[in-house]
């Protein structure tokens, strides 16, 4: 289980995270929502040690992340951020193979190869596994990076705005894939989402942040309510039920 306690992060005078405490449910998809600047991505970066916090601790399986060896932590927790503008001449398969780096460094074993193959199939990349990533479309590139995370085969997967720059079709594909990871492979997923309807549709739990504080943390059904969302975003939202899922209308 991932647990954060009293996480604080400041940029100069501005407090971005203010004593955030949370426990994430194992094997479930938890979405982080909130307005711009609420601290969602910062929280994700702190949990994944890309950013160091000013105060508080992050616990992964009851152990402080600072006590983990980097390599061991990379076998339990992975993060996918959006800024992947690498201009390397790297094929999809080579990129996905890097997912096995925490386990075998650059000497891949049979088992590693198997996991790489599985990840490639899982994301339907077989046809383009030898293509160079800098020649792929945005959606394909996103899938290639996702496959790397799948090959990394960590218990916890953190995704930072995975739908950015994706069209409708690829957004839905990505979300379905994320669901599959949780339901079929039992992964714990924490995802930052901007679109409240994607959060409503695909997550089990939702954490709402506002001004660096957690203001709600509950099951999706308890968060997707008109009064709660008004409180989170400061916008009036109308909720309709459709196919047993709640859709928010905020126009």
């Amino acid at each position: 289980m991932i647990e954060v306690q009293e996480i604080t992060k400041q940029y100069g005078e501005k407090v971005v995270l203010d004593k955030v405490g949370l426990q994430f449910h194992k094997g479930k998809v938890t979405s982080l929502i909130g307005s711009n600047g609420a601290g969602k991505s910062t929280l994700l970066s702190v949990i994944s040690r890309l950013l160091s916090q000013d105060g508080g601790v992050v616990m992964v399986d009851e152990k402080n992340v600072t006590e983990y060896k980097n390599r061991m932590l990379a076998q339990r927790l992975s993060i996918l951020k959006q800024s992947n503008h690498v201009r390397l001449k790297l094929t999809v398969r080579e990129l996905v193979s890097f997912g096995r780096f925490p386990y075998s460094q650059d000497k891949l074993t049979k088992e590693d190869m198997m996991k790489v193959d599985r990840a490639i199939d899982f994301l339907n990349l077989r046809a383009i596994e030898h293509a160079y990533i800098d020649e792929l479309s945005g959606g394909q590139k996103q899938r290639a990076y996702m496959a790397m995370v799948v090959a990394q085969d960590t218990e916890y997967i953190l995704l930072d705005e995975p739908l950015n720059n994706l069209d409708m079709k690829h957004s839905v594909q990505t979300m379905k894939m994320m669901r599959q990871l949780a339901d079929e492979l039992g992964k714990t997923i924490i995802v930052v989402l901007h679109d409240i309807n994607f959060a409503s549709h695909y997550s089990d739990y939702i954490v709402a942040l506002k001004d660096g504080k957690v203001i709600y943390h509950d099951t999706t059904d308890n968060i997707i309510r008109e009064d709660v969302l008004k409180d989170v975003f400061g916008v009036r939202v109308k909720i309709c039920e459709f196919d047993h899922k709640r859709i928010c209308n905020y126009f």
């Binding site: 994944s48 040690r49 890309l50 060896k69 993060i79 996918l80 890097f98 997912g99 990394q152």
Partner: peptide
């Protein structure tokens, strides 16, 4: 040199893949 292979993916990816 294998660390360089990973560093080439950028800082965030390198950390994600367990590099100090």
């Amino acid at each position: 040199t294998r660390y360089l292979d990973v560093l080439a993916l950028g800082r965030d990816q390198a950390i994600n893949l367990g590099l100090d």
